[in-house]
Amino acid sequence: MEQTPQVTLADIPANRRLVDELLAHRKIAPEGRDYALDFLTPADQWGLWISRLFLAVGSALVLCGVVYFFAFNWAKIAPLVKLSTIQGGLFCCLLGAYYYKLERVSGQVLLLSASVLTGVFMAVYGQIYQTGADAYQLFMMWSLFIFGWTVISNFAAQWILWLAVTNVFLALWWEQAALPERDMEALIFVGFAALNGLALVLREVYVARRQAAWLDRRWVRVLLTIAVLIPLATPLMIWILDDHDIGSSLKISALVGLVGHGLLYGLYRFKFRDMWPLAAIALSLCIILETLVLDFLVMNFEDTEVLMFGLMGLATIAIFSLAVLYLRRIISVMEAKHV
């Protein structure tokens, strides 16, 4: 899909392909190419990148190995040895994090490892003593224990881990402890949206105040936006598709879903101006509208499938065309950088 070019040299990203094209068409000499490549990717940047890659993958492998080891639940190992091994690992990670400091990636990764080991410790503890506690309690305690570390971590991955653990806790607690009446079941969507929404708002506030540069990564924003959009859109779609058995909680969740979409739109259209979250919101709205049209067509044209398919196809083209058109029109206004 192409657009009329209004391109200047400053808009074109310099990359390896451009350098290769310059050489291939003899616009620069091989020495010029070598200089250009070193300019784009200096050797020390390579070393740093590889070093970080090794650190990330290596830590992930070790942690997976530890989880696998305790999942094996080897009976030959005494419970005390199991627990003290994990505690020892946890203590070493914390000591390492203290030594390397949390301003460095090494320290942050070690703190993240300690957070994972906390969960492993609690799982093994439950395995040994058969406490009979519900699974939600494990995730609740895990979430509580690592919250303090998360606050001081200055590390986006640590926050994502904490949020994932807390989301699982919320889901399990709702199912195992809250035991809502059927009429109240759908309120869980509000809970998920509120939790992830709060994380998103905090991220925006702290980044805007320049108090958390480490959170200023687009992937964090996009991931959190999607984590908010899913619980906002789901009750709306359930309401549309299941219109004869709607409880008041579903109505509330759906209303929150609508308002939430509006708030997110306002946030990224006018306050923080970012096209990626807006595209995610547009996609979510398109899917909700598609569900609405599909439900309408199924209800009214059940016997005339030809008409149903035809109208659905037309409606889909119309809905997505409008979404694309809208996004294209606001790109220039928002001066968003393209990929």
Partner: peptide, 19 residues
């Protein structure tokens, strides 16, 4: 030619797939 951003191309793709 300037390509449209990736997110718009993805949106176009999803719409075309359903249609």
């Amino acid at each position: 030619e300037t390509e449209l951003p990736l997110y718009i191309r993805a949106l176009v793709g999803v719409g075309a797939f359903i249609a």
